[in-house]
């Protein structure tokens, strides 16, 4: 059972990674916590669901949903963050205004779904199981692991190896210096919000598909986990977010499997404190952060 539980944890953790990457990316670039990230995740699942039941092919529905959540995230930036950024000292007001956007999105979703739990129609994704070396793995789990691996690799490539990515990191490291070098911070913000939103949207779809369940509050537990991931991994650190997500997924699986139920959250937060005691900046604190995060 141990290896099966680790596999379960890795699959869940890989989706956490998808969700947390966008959150940490926005934090890295803007030094702002985007509370609307959970609602964006939920919106991704909802949009793909409504597209699917209106007859759109599933892959197209996912694509549409990712674009839409990317745009939603851009709107979050424009509505909740942009004007606050201009006046400086935006951390706390931005937190509050992004909570506001979160509540609006959640309320809309509640109205649209009539508070019902939604799930993708049976057959949206083929249910197939493979057994090897005693492990039971579904086609969906394999596809999710592969998709997340590819997207994470693409994201790292984008940040490390492309001009756009370097601009993102430049703004993350030192926005003022970047501007003097010709980097358009506004367009960097729009890009990072779009990427963060699209990844969160995809995470929403995958979670909805994997666990047959989508409801208007589904973003909240993931938001909480994203905080843990980002703090354990190191604020703004992309590799940190990936490692911490996978760790969190596996830990969660193992606590459910081997410890009295109800302790999961307590253990996760205990882990958080232990990590912070040993490494106050998180596992991948500051200096190695791909997306920056160093304050000058």
């Amino acid at each position: 059972m141990l290896s099966q539980q680790i596999l379960n944890g890795l699959v869940t953790g890989s989706v956490y990674a998808l969700f947390s990457l966008g959150f940490t990316l926005i934090f890295g670039v803007q030094k702002l916590l985007n509370f609307a990230h959970g609602a964006t995740f939920m919106a991704g699942a909802f949009i793909a669901y409504y597209c699917t039941i209106s007859g759109l092919p599933f892959l197209l529905a996912i694509g549409f949903s990712m674009v839409a959540t990317g745009v939603i995230a851009i709107l979050v930036d424009l509505i909740a963050f942009r004007s606050l950024r201009k006046r400086g000292n935006a951390e706390f007001p931005a937190l509050v205004s992004s909570i506001g956007v979160d509540l609006i999105l959640v309320s809309i979703a509640q109205q649209v779904s009539k508070t019902q739990v939604l799930n993708f129609p049976f057959g949206t994704f083929p249910v197939k199981f493979y057994t090897f070396m005693g492990l039971r793995i579904s086609l969906l789990q394999l596809v999710i692991l592969a998709t997340v691996a590819v997207l994470v690799a693409l994201l790292i490539f984008y940040l490390k190896k492309t001009t756009f990515g370097r601009q993102v990191r430049a703004v993350a490291t030192n926005e003022r210096a970047a501007a003097l070098l010709g980097v358009n911070a506004q367009s960097v913000y729009l890009q990072t919000f779009f990427i963060a939103g699209a990844l969160a949207g995809l995470a929403g779809v995958l979670i909805g598909l994997l666990f047959n369940s989508m409801q208007f509050l589904m973003g909240e537990p993931y938001m909480l986990r994203a905080f843990v991931v980002v703090v354990i991994g190191g604020l703004g650190s992309v590799p940190g977010a990936i490692v911490a997500s996978l760790m969190l997924g596996v830990m969660q699986s193992l606590t459910v499997a081997y410890l009295p139920s109800g302790l999961t959250d307590a253990i996760i937060f205990a882990l958080l404190f232990v990590v912070l005691l040993i490494r106050p900046n998180g596992l991948f604190g500051d200096a190695n952060a791909v997306a920056g995060g160093t304050r000058q």
Binding site: M1, Q4, Q5, N8, G9, V11, T12, I207, L210, F211, N212, S213, M214, Q215, L217, M218, E220, P221, Q252, S253, L254, V256, A257, S261, G262
Partner: peptide, 21 residues
């Protein structure tokens, strides 16, 4: 066995594996 889930939970993969085995 006695296990509890939260109302907002949808990830039961670990719990399901535990009970199935």
């Amino acid at each position: 066995s006695v296990d509890g889930v939260a109302l907002a939970d949808s990830d039961f993969s670990a719990l399901a594996t535990k009970i199935a085995t």
